[in-house]
């Protein structure tokens, strides 16, 4: 086990393993930092959701907690005007192409977006941006689960487990810009693809994009 060091988050002293990432040190100590794309075991964090910003003393600009290594004497603030603005904007951008219909959503009440909204007092609706909902058929080909891209936040967690845990390589990111999407080779349905339907990606999904047909 690596050496334990002391750092300060929001005025609270905590002990954590040096070299680990700040996000997990905070979460493990009951200090909330919004996040969607982070995976604890992932060696090189994707840092793509841009929700985990914090202020670190000595850094000119806010940094992403999921990439910030834990160091002795680190002084961290999870909230500041700049942090709140960054998080609010990143959050609204994610919502802008998200089909926001919580009542009909399988993730309702266990959703990562809802959690962030609750913790940070953010609205689960668009205030400044125009909605750009994604139009795509739901892939219901797998026996136990479905994939609805219109709710995907492109966090990449499903792809990470598909590669690193299931060791299959059935899904990946394709296209770019607004068309960026998670899909299979040549957009086959999951059943046609090399997906073995292990369902690990469903557990990894922080929102209602990948969901079990029968609620667990």
């Amino acid at each position: 086990m690596s050496e334990k060091v002391t750092l300060t988050i929001d005025g609270r002293e905590i002990r954590a393993a040096a070299g680990g990432k700040l996000l997990w040190a905070a979460l493990d100590n009951g200090i909330y930092i919004p996040n969607l794309c982070a995976v604890r075991e992932r060696v090189r964090p994707a840092a793509s959701c841009r929700l985990c910003f914090v202020e670190v003393e000595g850094s000119a600009a806010p940094v992403t907690a999921c990439t910030q290594p834990v160091k002795d004497g680190l002084v961290v603030r999870t909230r500041s005007e700049r942090v709140d603005r960054l998080v609010r904007s990143a959050f609204e951008l994610l919502l802008s192409d998200h089909r926001l219909q919580c009542r009909e959503c399988p993730a309702n009440r266990s959703c990562g977006l809802q959690k962030i909204a609750r913790e940070r007092g953010l609205k689960l609706r668009l205030t400044r941006l125009k909605p750009l909902p994604k139009e795509a058929a739901i892939d219901e080909s797998a026996a136990a689960f479905s994939f609805d891209r219109s709710r995907c936040v492109l966090c990449g967690r499903c792809i990470w487990v598909d590669r690193e845990v299931a060791k299959v390589g059935a899904i990946g990111f394709t296209r770019r810009g607004l068309e960026r999407t998670v899909t299979t080779f040549e957009d086959e349905t999951l059943a046609e693809s090399i997906c073995n339907e292990c369902g690990l990606c469903v557990h990894a999904c922080p929102v209602g994009a990948l969901y079990f047909k029968q609620p667990e």
Partner: peptide, 8 residues
Amino acid sequence: VPAVDLYG
């Protein structure tokens, strides 16, 4: 490399 990454 997974075929889906070539497609990507």
